[in-house]
Each structure stands twice: as C-alpha cells, then as structure tokens.
Design a protein around this nucleic acid. Sequence first.
DNA 1: GCAAGGTC
Length: 861
Amino acid sequence: MAPPIPKVLMVAEKPSIALSIASLLSRAQMSTRRGSTDVHEFEGRFLASPARFKVTSVIGHVFSVDFPGKYQDWSATDPLDLFQAQVIKTESNPKAHICRHLNQEARGCRYLVLWLDCDREGENICFEVINSTGFNINDTYRARFSSVTEKDVLKALDNLVRPNRDEALAVDARQEIDLKVGVAFTRFQTSYFQGKYRNLDSRVISYGPCQTPTLGFCVQRYLQINTFKPEKFWSLHPYIIQNGYEIQLEWKRGKLFDINVAMMFQNLVSEDGLLEVTEISEKQETKGRPVGLNTVNLLKVASSALGFGPHMAMQLAERLYTQGFISYPRTESTAYPTTFDFRGVLSAQTNNPTWGNYVQGLLANGYQKPRSGTDVGDHPPITPMRSAAEDMLGNDAWKLYQYICQHFIGTVSPDCKYIRRKVEFSIGGESFYCTGQQVVTKGFTAIMPWLAINDKNIPSFIKGQKIEVSKLELYEGKTSPPDYLTESELISLMEKYGIGTDASIPVHINNICERNYVQVQAGRKLVPTTLGITLVRGYQTIDPDLCLPDIRSFIEQQISLIARGQVDHRCVVQHVIQQFKQKFCYFVKKIEDMDALFEAQFSTLTDSGRLMSKCGKCLRYMKYISAQPTRLYCGTCEEVYYLPQKGTIKLYKELTCPLDNFELLICSIAGPDGKSFPLCPYCYSNPPFEGMEALINTAKTGTSGKIGKGAGMPCNLCPHPTCPNSLVSQGVCACPECSGTLVIDPISAPRWRLCCNMCNCLVFLAQGAHRISTTKERCPECESSILEVDFNKKTTPLEDGTTLHRGCILCDDLLHSLVEMKHGRSFRYRSSRGRGRGRGGRGRGRRGGRMMDPKMSFREF
DNA sequence: GCAAGGTC
C-alpha cells in the first residue's frame, strides 16, 4: 500500500494572515473549520511531493514571562531577590487555548512551516509554536515573506529556511530583563512611597525601561520651560511702498541681542534713507509628495491634526482594518511593494463625493509612481481598501479613514511646484530682503489641502532701482520658552530613540497618563503632573540613567549581540541583570534623596485627614485619608489600614469588632444599585480567619481594597460565630446568582434590601417596614434564616393590624410575595435540589480544623 | 498591584 501523503502544518502570526496564505496557496480551494483559531485545509505540493496542508495561526505571542507563584506576594518578596528569580513562561491568553490548539493540530503532521512576521518577535513566536507542538527542528521550516501577495508567498514556500534561534533568544533575553527590572523597581517604589503621602494619587508607582524614558521626555520639556529665562532681542524692519503696496522687509542679520549695536545699525540705515535693489532671483521649488503611510506617522497626524490620542487612533484603525476598509495598520514601512495594485486601490475611490473626481483624473491622466520610502520588510504602508461613506463608519473612524485615503492619493499625485521670488536690498551697508511665492502645480496639495502653499505676491522691482524708506522700525521682541511637548513630538522622540515599537508606543503613552504622571491638555500637549515631575527629578538626583532613553538602547544593543550569535544568551542576561541589580541597590540606598523631593511636594499622612474611628490597639482616633487609595491612619501606632475604594465611609454606631476592638465603619455605595455593609478596619486589611483570602478574591463586591496583604474582608464575609454583624448573624440565604450569600443591608431602611456579599445581586424586601432582622431560627424547609419583620402600623399587610411577623423569605407566602429582585430574575425556593444535607451553619465554629464555610450552608437548597 | 511585546 502506498504511504499516505504527508501532512504539513502551517502557522501564521494572526488569523487574517493564515486566511490569506491559505487562499493564495490553495487558489481559494480550501475548506475551513473553526478552532481556537480557524484551520484551513487543502491539498498541494510540498518539497516536490504531494502534501496535505493545514494552515492555522496563533494570535501574537503564545506565552509571556512571569515570576513563579512564590514571588507574587509583594510583602513576602524582597524586590532585590527578583533579579535572581527564575522566570517562567505562561500562556499569554489562557482562555484562547492556543497551546492546546497547536498541539492538537500538529498531531499526525509530518512538517511544520512557520509563517510568522519577519522580525525578532516573529522568530521568538516560531519557537513558542515549536514548543507547543513538539516538532523536531529538522521537520520545521520558516517561510520568510515581506508581503502577503501570491508572488511573495510562493517565493517564500520555494525558499524555506530554518527558524533563527539566536533572534528568538534575544527576545527571551529582552523579556526577562524587562520583567525583572520593571517589576523590581516598581514594587520597591510603590511600597516605599505609598501610604507615606496623603495626596499621592497613583495606586502604582511604576517603573519601566520604556515608560520611564517616555515620561522623561515630557518632564525634560517641562523643566526647559520652567527654567527658561527670556531674553530681549531687536530687529530692524524698513518699510517701503512699491506700486501702492506697503511691504515690510526682513533683515539679513535676523535679530540682535544688544540694543546698542541694533541702534547703531538703525542710525546707519536712517542716515542713508535710500534702499537699492541689489538682486532679484526666481527659482522653482518643489514640495515633495508624501511617502507611504506607516503607523507612527498615522499616530502623529491623528494626534496633531485629528485630535485623537494614539490609543484611540489605533483602536479606530484596528476597527477599520477588521472591517476591511484599510490595510493592516501596524507597519513601519513607508515603501510600497513592487507588486502593489495602485490602480485597483485608486479605482475603489472614484465614487467618493469629495475626492472621486480627483481620483478619476489621476486614473485617466496617469498617476505618479510613489517616492521610494523605506521597506522594513513587515507590512505594506497603510492604504484604503474598500470605499466607504461617512454613515458607514461613524464620525471619528471616518475622519481617520479620510486621512488614510487622502494620504494614499497624495503618494501617487504629482509633487507641488511653486516659484519662489526673492528681492534683496542694500542700505547703509546693511542687507534686507523680501520673498514671495506662487504655486505653479498644486499636485498632491490639492488632495491634502492643509499642506498647500499659499501664494504670496510681491510687486515687481528692477535691479538697481532706488526706493525710499517709508518707515524704519526697530522691533523689540523677547525670546519665549518652548511649549509643552505635544503627543506628536513625543512619538517622534520615541521613534528616534527606539523607545517602544509601532504597536507599543501608544501603550507607553497611555501608561504614563493612566498612572497620573502626565495629563493630556488642549492641543494634545503632555503636561507632567507633580508626581511625574518629582519622580523624574528623583531619578535625575540619584541615577539619571534611569530616566534617559539610553537605558532602552543599552538593552537593545546587548540583546542584539545575542541575535547576531556573537554572545551566549545566558551571559548577556546575567551581565545586564547584574548591571541593573547594582543600579537597583544604589537606588534603594539613595531613595531618601528622592524622598526629600516627595516630602517637599506631597503632604505626609500625619499632618492631614479628619478623625474617623478609634484604633483597637491604642484606643485613639485614627485619621481618614480621602485621597485615593482611601485609608485610615493611626498616628500613634503609625499604621495604615486600607478601606474599600468605592463608596462613602462613616462610623457605624460606635460598635466595635469583638476580635480586635477596632470601631466598626459602614461603607455605603450610592445609586439605585447601591448597598452598604459594615467593616472593621483591622479585619478588612488583615482577615482574622485562615483561608479567607481565597474567598475574598472571588468576591466581586467591587469594594475590596485590593491593597496590602489580604485586604478586603468586610463583616459580611466574616465567619465570626457570635458577632451580631458577621456573615453568620446577618446572612439570610444563598444568592440566586452566584455562590455568595444574601445579607441584610443594615442601613437600607425604609427600602429594606438584601445584598449579596460576593456579587452585585440585590433583593428588595418589605418596603417601609420599621425593622427587619435575622433571628437564630432557621427555616425547616430551606434552612434560610427566619426573618423578623416589624411592619409599619399604617401599611401593615397583616390582617389583624398587628405589625410583627416572622417567616422565611422563600417559603413564607406573605414575605415571599413582598420580595422583588433587582434584575427581574426569579427568586424562589427550589425544593428539588439536594436539601437537608444537615450542614447547619449558624453558631458553628471550627470543625475538623477547617474553617466553617463562610458562604453558609444553605447554598444547596 | 508590577514590564514590554505580540494581537483582538
């Protein structure tokens, strides 16, 4: 029997590329099935033999690096240890199950062909795929293609190479270095400064080899502005009247910074009084059409002309791309591939109401070959694909699409040509001039009118002609500081210094905004905040390298040694990590120098905040710090207690926690979906019962502080057996929507409600009742806590006009009829499911060494 | 809660 034809697995970097490659190789004769990513199958030839192809893709990196679990606890890890820590690779997107998908698709395949982007990251993803599939390197090939065109794809398949392990290892090195350096500095800074200053409004004080130099650029400009000393200058401007027009002439010397010298020239000129035309020149100038549009230039235009931040611009571009209106928006290249179908792309634009006629003209009269640009070998420049109308895209996306179209049309339009005239004059031994210009060919500026050159007419002169000075002005000016860095300028600087990539530049800018280091102001100018300025000034004081762009270039240059196979990967990582470790140690040693700057800018906890509740340790009042993250500060014990970050905090009836004697607080979240719950400030940060952390982490109350070790246990999660505020006392029944428990909201009167202690579920009870409370009794049917309701005398539903009623909200007809679910789901006793398991919870303490289930036992009704 | 890099 003939051997079965071999199967070839091909993997691309993203689903769209897999689809294109499969369509090209199969001439659209493939079958497609769904998986984690689509798989396209067809028959063809591979290595000169018949073969069956399967083309699928990853979605970017399969893995990312992290520290093992034991390093995840901030308080239990010395950041210094991170430099020596092991790093592990975990799946970047566990829900996508890409690793499993690749492994499954690889089964029964003889060969692996990797169609990843042709850069270091792509090479690294090659090995991620190899590791996920377990292919032997001898059966693994790499296709190198610079565009997804039939010609390129076929050429790549005929010229397969091997994946480049050195380039992949360079990326591994970068990942490890970035992780260790970033996380170590971030954790140290955050822990050091947070909780020390009241108005420090950032939850994380991050450091990163890209984000920090990015911030550095913004602060550098700020410091330039702040230290700028204006200087006076003077300039001489003679005026003449020629053919009835008054013209101001420019001085060849520009400006002078010494008034005496300037006045001397003024005298010379005014004594002469007669200008002589010494030179008349006319020259044709060209303003060149643009090269193809790459991501960085798109982002710059989006920020400076359209008012979209890079983050938003990329989101819009991404959507336009997935909807097929534009080509792939992440590219560095500005050169079109030789095979680019200009006519096809132009033809799609002939119906556009704004530029359709212009495009028809280009098609009829011949469009220009675009300027050469640079080809980085990634993707073609960003161009329109399908034609669109404004109502198909929405306002913002339309603006971006419009620009992309205009830019593309501009690249195949003629250059703009204009005539520049210059007339030079002499008087008293000084030279002056005036210029004018006249457009001959609008060229691409017809379609990109914001780049148009304005005509400026000057009257005609004759060489040797003498003209009287009508007025002589000695202009006094003042040098002015630069303006804040615009986002567009920042993008240029980042590109120039190699900070980030086309895809990550928006992320870094977004980061420094979100961390509250800079703010975007009108005109998309980046104004650093006090925090941003203080951080950078701190680095400048301790170790300026930390915020300079060279820190990135150093890493890049080191890992390039690996990529070129010149130095062993481990050696480089060790060397670089050692350097950063030393910098880190020095930074830690000198942190007080930075702290001095913080002290000057921010108020310490001790001198701020209003008195709130009593500390259980020293019995003195603690101060409430309302700035994020909200917390209590005990000045006597010098302790900080974090609080829920949402809602208002008040003292709760001067009640105290039976465990630690701290006064209880009540947190109320306003609004129709609001709720309130008591908490002990000490227990909230330091849950008293073992095993609570895991539970707290699953509670989606939106209120847990998530700060400090084990933060986030309010009383409604507390399993204390006798405290009247604990879950055990206040819990009523299982939440119908999650695994939590419904608890009485103690201050919800008269709109009585139960709130889930884990999710946002709300259940409204008898409205207007005087009092609703739990009792120690339990419903024999469903084990819910029996409620005691004291109805209002006027509105009581009880027949004899009495007000007191006891019952189960699920099984008691009267109470159940008064229950109303917030989101309209049914809420009733389901008798068919395993009840009576006898796990009576209330009043029960520890059993068999394990914590009592704090969700209470009536979960399974 | 932490970096930077892919992509969605």
